[in-house]
Design a protein around this nucleic acid. Structure first.
Lengths: 199, 199
DNA sequence: TCTTGACAAACGAACGTTCGTTTGTGGTAT
DNA sequence: ATACCACAAACGAACGTTCGTTTGTCAAGA
């Protein structure tokens, strides 16, 4: 049997996995090495420091979300359709890059201040896209005028970011249904309303 | 000036604070000691191990949520009212015990398996109260019949549990308005009545 | 031949924890 | 009122271990 050698990308990927599972401080370089069949010290042939690994994983998370939201903003249609695209895009990023996302969401705070600041502002930028689309929807008259875009975007993102905590790919809920369910709660809530059409 | 001595409860409280901020593995016993003006070793006059502190804080979190939900289930009224009581109770627990809740939500997974199992089942029990109330509401006809109680409860709890990540007591949003906003999105969504978009 | 990736050994610092000792305090006997 | 003692709380040093990282070597590909 031929064991291929490890690349730097293998190491970053494994770091994302382990940081997601056991946390940055809960993962040692020796842990990480043995995940790849290496000694901890051998990792330093590829990287300069442990923190670099965290920076790399977290930055990738930020980039994935920003790219996704940029694509969503480019779809034709009004606020309703754009919001749905933002939601669907977010779900895709979470499900396709679960480890990176979990590290991005839970371990970014372990970065030192300068790196953390950069990540926070990327996150703000991302969230502003949700805020703006909801604002636009209120102005267009498709969303209720008593909706606070700031609060509503936080709530929708809360649902989206929590997916990593409970969703299991083999759990009988496919991603289309998931998007549908989130969009459904966000737009219509759970309550019966006389003026709301049943489907 | 009189410096009072530290009690065991002081230590548990400080542990909750530090575990919430820097994570369990990111907090050393020396860190924790100096937070209280003590050496790390001095903590062992009060406790047996670092993990005991985590167990204690996390258990308190579980207890707070279970008690809160028990009180909510006891209110008179239908599912709508009970759900609102569950939401308000959850918000109270989060805002009144922010450090404990943050440790409960983010650090419980660092517990060893036996402790973690117990905490997970407590959490399941808590979540089942939300699920049951929503089921009841669907049966009563006050919630839409196409609402999946399992999914809806997950989404509502996602919003509730994310509060610790963004809410600032001095941020101009009081807790009544917060409960109102959550209840509003959960029941009515953001969309203006009439029609769900065609797709 | 030169470069690369991994190894083995080792470094100093920090980790959780233990130990023997000191300090302050509050109750009891004188 | 004073002396004493038991006790809890904190200290400071040290334990064995693990941490992230550095160094030097060496085999295998290019």
């Amino acid at each position: 049997m031929v064991t291929t050698r490890n690349t730097r990308e293998d190491i970053v990927a494994a770091a994302g996995r382990m940081f997601a599972d056991k946390g940055y401080h809960g993962t040692s370089m020796r842990d990480l090495g043995s995940e790849l069949g290496l000694l901890g010290s051998s990792l330093y042939s590829h990287i300069d420091s442990k923190e670099d690994l965290l920076v790399e994983v977290v930055d990738e998370g930020a980039r994935l979300f920003l790219n996704s939201s940029q694509r969503a903003m480019a779809v034709d249609g009004g606020a309703e359709k754009k919001l749905r695209a933002l939601i669907a895009g977010h779900v895709d990023v979470v499900l396709d890059h679960l480890d990176v996302v979990r590290t991005y969401l839970n371990e970014a705070r372990m970065l030192d201040e300068s790196h953390r600041t950069r990540v926070v502002s990327a996150r703000d930028h991302y969230e502003s896209r949700f805020r703006n689309v909801i604002s636009q929807g209120v102005e267009e008259g498709v969303f209720r005028s008593d909706v606070d875009p700031k609060i509503a975007s936080i709530f929708i993102l809360s649902i989206l970011n929590a997916i990593e905590r409970w969703y299991r790919p083999d759990g009988g809920l496919d991603r289309t249904s998931l998007v549908e369910a989130i969009d459904g709660l966000a737009t219509s809530g759970i309550q019966i309303s006389a003026s709301r059409d049943p489907r």
